[in-house]
Amino acid sequence: MSMSSVLEKPASLLERARASYPRDRVFEFMQPRPAFDQPVDTRKGPILYVEGVSVSFDGFKALNNLSLYINDGELRCIIGPNGAGKTTMMDVITGKTRPDQGQVYFGQTINLLALQEHEIARGGIGRKFQKPTVLETLSVYDNLELAMASNKGVWSCLLHTLNGEQRDRIAEVLHLIRLTAQARQQAGALSHGQKQWLEIGMLLMQNPRILLVDEPVAGMTGEETERTAELLTSLAGRHAVIVVEHDMAFVRSIARTVTVLHQGSVLAEGSMDKIQNDPKVIEVYLGE
């Protein structure tokens, strides 16, 4: 927020204080809240900026000066051996882990490091966990309803009722993840692959700009894997999709750009062919 715009309409005491003396550089709580109601600023191309991020746990560097840019609507695959920092990177982006150093921006203006998990989720970054995590005791329909982008405050949840538009949206996503027939079934009774899809469906209900998908095809049959590849490819374009996966055949089938992580930083980036012929990558990963 620029100085002049604040001076034009001094709405609150806090804003006036900000305008009179730039204390907000000192005290975090005085920083203007990110304006999620406005479209994310992607004029320069990337929707996610990860710059120089380092995270260490008890001396072990899980991320080491990691820099990564994801373009709006891109489908990006991230691969790397175990312990390369893939999950930690997702934790940093979604607010679960705070990095020791570095910056993470959503669009050009929103600093994700200043936000909590639920704010990041509401703001448009959805995350699928490595283990499929759905709400087992609720029906498939309720799972989607719960994840739906809407006012997620306590009181509005107490009085909430679905409107027609929201029902249509749930039906649409049910169709997309091929669970229309199971809508009233308990999510706990779904097969492993169906749970993975349901979780992806829950992310879609949040209307995210970025989907972080951790190992979407783990434990899936060949046919399910194929359908998941189809689903993720169809989502790219409308959403930026970041897929972390071990299954190289799957990565090959969907990848446009692949990033290889190794020991907490980017080892190589480019098309699948380029990656496969990169001597560094062959040495640490493919060559094993």
């Binding site: 989720a121 005791t137 609720l138 309720d142 309803e145 306590v154 949840c157 949040q206």
Partner: peptide, 21 residues
């Protein structure tokens, strides 16, 4: 209410609920 479902969701999968916003 929907609140009740959120509460059950917190019981069964707290981080899923948190990352659902």
């Amino acid at each position: 209410s929907r609140l009740g479902r959120v509460i059950v969701a917190i019981r069964d999968a707290e981080s899923r609920t948190r990352f659902s916003g």
